[in-house]
Amino acid sequence: RNQQPPAVTIDRMRYFQILHAYHQSLIIEPEFAATHLMLFDLYSNMGKIDLAHRELKTYLEMIEGQEELSDDAFARLRAYTDHLEKLNTQITQITQELDAQQEKGAERLQLASQAYQNGFVLLTQRYLDDPVYLAQNPLAQNLNATVLMEVGQSEAADSQMSLLEQKAMQNPQIPWRAQAAFTNLGNGNYRGCFDLWRQEIRSHEEARIAGVLQSMPLVQPISNSFWPTQHTVSIVNYLYGLSQQQIPLLLNLARCEIEAGQPELATGHLREILETEPATPYRPLVRFYLYQLTGELIPVLPEAPAGQTEPETEALPLVAPKP
């Protein structure tokens, strides 16, 4: 029986890097059917339904007519064909639903966002295919750049982000740096990627600090009866922002610095992650990279605060033993 392998967790940065590598491979060798199958696996893993359908359909068309298939190969081919029909059914269903909303007057960006969130990238591109609308809507431009990256048009995505950057100079509220960093990375521009991530880290930090300062008692009017709660919430938001915003950006920065041949800078950012949040869920990954870069093997768990008894744990090997 043909069984699907378990899904592999791929973060957004690695996803765009792998995606770009596959599309570059197709430029070099467009008739290599296996690349389309690997793209199908990647898109399926990331929940990109219509892109997975496109690549699987292309793969099946390219191998059509092959003779003397083994029993296993024939079984796989039949399973792929059945899966293609299931994907097509999903695409047809969501297209009909969103088209019905469009007929009722739903806004383009709303439809595109809904399609993208459900894994229909090509359908998203269809709703954004209006140059006049794109030119007037920065959020649509940002989403369009993401779509262009995912469909394999990294240079077009870079051009889109360049236009959005110009608009962001006039309106700093426009979100653009995160996607622009991935676009730069996909095109091999590590320096531009580093600059954007550093700017994004600084921007998040300034916004969090401003939120804390604005809720302090010296700033709040005497009549504000919500002061203690409001200030507590702002501090919680600050700490949450460290975990959800700054730490992932620092990790992306460190990993790319390793790739760019800057191990000293990468080591500094990895240590900064541990100093900022010792119990970060990224600690095992940081531990691995630090060991590879410096030979230092940090504890699996962070040290317990002073006065607190640390639970006994069995030391885990860095590399899993062979079965």
Results as ranks from 00 to 15, higher is better:
176 W>D: 00
106 A>M: 00
267 T>Y: 15
46 M>H: 01
140 A>E: 05
31 E>V: 02
211 G>I: 06
239 L>M: 11
91 I>D: 01
129 D>V: 02
255 R>H: 10
89 T>K: 15
140 A>T: 00
229 T>Y: 15
136 Q>V: 05
314 E>Y: 13
96 Q>A: 09
179 Q>T: 14
98 L>T: 15
224 N>R: 14
142 N>E: 02
234 S>Q: 11
191 R>A: 15
228 P>H: 02
271 R>D: 14
182 F>C: 04
239 L>A: 06
29 E>M: 05
209 I>N: 08
234 S>C: 02
322 K>Y: 00
46 M>L: 01
222 I>G: 02
107 E>V: 15
47 G>R: 03
288 F>V: 15
230 Q>F: 11
42 L>H: 01
160 Q>N: 08
282 Y>H: 11
217 P>C: 12
47 G>H: 03
253 L>T: 04
60 L>Q: 10
159 S>V: 07
54 R>V: 09
204 H>Q: 03
268 G>L: 14
175 P>D: 05
275 E>G: 04
56 L>N: 01
174 I>P: 14
45 N>V: 00
307 G>C: 05
288 F>W: 13
28 I>P: 02
233 V>E: 03
77 L>R: 11
213 L>I: 12
113 S>E: 15
314 E>K: 13
314 E>T: 14
321 P>A: 11
287 R>D: 01
39 L>V: 05
302 P>I: 05
43 Y>K: 01
201 I>Q: 05
314 E>G: 02
148 L>T: 02
29 E>K: 06
30 P>K: 03
271 R>Q: 14
242 L>C: 04
174 I>L: 13
154 S>H: 10
323 P>K: 08
238 Y>N: 07
100 A>N: 10
264 E>F: 06
164 L>S: 07
134 L>R: 14
175 P>S: 06
250 L>G: 04
166 Q>H: 09
65 G>F: 06
117 Q>S: 12
314 E>S: 11
36 H>G: 00
160 Q>S: 12
66 Q>F: 11
77 L>P: 08
110 Q>W: 12
74 F>A: 04
214 Q>D: 06
185 L>R: 03
137 N>V: 10
217 P>A: 09
211 G>L: 08
6 P>K: 10
307 G>V: 03
129 D>I: 01
38 M>E: 08
96 Q>P: 07
149 M>D: 00
91 I>P: 01
112 A>W: 15
252 N>K: 03
273 I>L: 01
246 Q>G: 01
263 P>F: 08
18 I>R: 10
276 T>L: 07
128 L>S: 09
105 G>H: 07
281 P>D: 04
122 L>I: 00
173 Q>S: 10
72 D>P: 03
38 M>D: 06
42 L>D: 01
199 Q>D: 14
1 R>V: 09
258 I>A: 00
21 A>H: 14
256 C>A: 07
224 N>T: 14
53 H>I: 02
127 Y>R: 08
22 Y>D: 01
213 L>A: 12
297 L>W: 05
111 L>F: 11
291 Y>R: 10
196 L>K: 10
309 T>P: 01
93 Q>S: 15
12 R>S: 06
170 Q>N: 05
184 N>T: 06
85 E>H: 08
76 R>D: 06
109 L>H: 13
83 H>Y: 13
137 N>E: 09
96 Q>D: 04
33 A>R: 04
127 Y>W: 08
130 D>C: 07
227 W>F: 10
22 Y>V: 10
157 A>C: 00
230 Q>H: 12
163 L>N: 05
157 A>I: 00
106 A>D: 00
